[in-house]
Design a protein around this nucleic acid. Structure first.
Ligand SMILES: [Zn+2]
Ligand SMILES: [Zn+2]
Ligand SMILES: [Zn+2]
Ligand SMILES: [Zn+2]
Lengths: 168, 168
DNA sequence: TAGACTATGTTATTATATAACGTTTTTTAT
DNA sequence: ATAAAAAACGTTATATAATAACATAGTCTA
């Protein structure tokens, strides 16, 4: 395995202060919602925080269980799906189609696409920088005469950390 | 809209003799299965033919309904899912994660990835040539230190034919 | 404060997929 | 040819993901 400069390693794959991931995500979300004059209600905020509990995508029903564990109240599916819908609409989270799961967006301020690197060992999903992929996708669509409306890339493999373990 | 040379237009988007798509797919599948010494049973062949009824991805339960309509016998989900699993395993079909649906592979002989252009108007899904995307995806994964195991690109938009209608 | 609107609660249902086990058919080994 | 094994398919039940339809509560505005 060739070394990868640590600056290019996805944050999700590096040791980091994850608490500040969570706090930053909530703070940013609050700002964005305020700017848009939409409401980040307690429920929506709580679901966002739960989605951010790790860098692993979580399913809707897992979130329901987590809500139940946190609150001693069990919400029904529509409740959490509505919160997810809101968070998706305002691009605060992404949906990973191949996993039926949801993950926090680390950069909701800037419009970008659904590009993910997903580790089949540890389950983390890291957003994939746009620079390599976006031009290629546009070229492919243009060549075929398609007008792009949305796009998604899901690369499944083994993350740097898990590769190290596997090698050892 | 800029003109696209018709040679680069996906077959799915052009007028064509679709009967020969179906027949070609079955013939090729039969050859591949023979070469691998695996069995393209009547059920598997029938599911493959149904998947190929159009260039639109079909869900498993739609296939069950189509089997029922064709045969006056209704198979249970596991039956069709097993056939789909076989066809997926031998790369005779692809799964479109964003649609929970399945589509025939026009070139099962050559290993390639799950790259699709999907029309949100007419529903067709065209395989996307590898040349633009594959290097970009490899570059993105390498930069992040990921070892790729599988990859999928789903570009949703409007196909050339539907763009024409929309323009008119 | 009435009316409109938004958000959440509640119940039921739909859609997608798999587990577990039984039967039939095909293949392989004797 | 026949027994054992494997593969394919049938059947029932269930898991998992998502939404429809309607009720209630909170919020904003006129
Ligand atoms: Zn973090
Ligand atoms: Zn990993
Ligand atoms: Zn065709
Ligand atoms: Zn179309």
């Amino acid at each position: 395995m060739s070394a990868t400069p640590s600056e290019t390693l996805p944050l999700a794959c590096r040791r980091h202060d994850h608490q500040s991931c969570i706090e930053g995500a909530i703070t940013t979300a609050a700002k964005i919602c305020q700017a848009k004059a939409v409401k980040l209600t307690p429920l929506r905020r709580q679901v966002l925080a739960l989605v951010w509990q790790s860098h692993k995508p979580l399913g809707a029903y897992t979130l329901i269980d987590m809500l139940a564990a946190a609150d001693t109240r069990r919400v029904a599916p529509p409740t959490v799906y509505r919160a997810l819908e809101f968070l998706l609409e305002h691009r605060l989270i992404h949906r990973i189609d191949s996993l039926n799961a949801y993950i926090g967006c680390p950069d909701p301020g800037h419009h970008h696409h659904n590009y993910f690197l997903i580790c089949l060992d540890c389950g983390i999903a890291a957003e994939c920088p746009t620079q390599y992929l976006s031009p290629a996708i546009e070229a492919a669509a243009t060549a075929a005469g398609f007008a792009i409306s949305s796009q998604s890339v899901e690369i499944v493999g083994r993350c740097p950390a898990c590769r190290k373990h596997a090698d050892a």
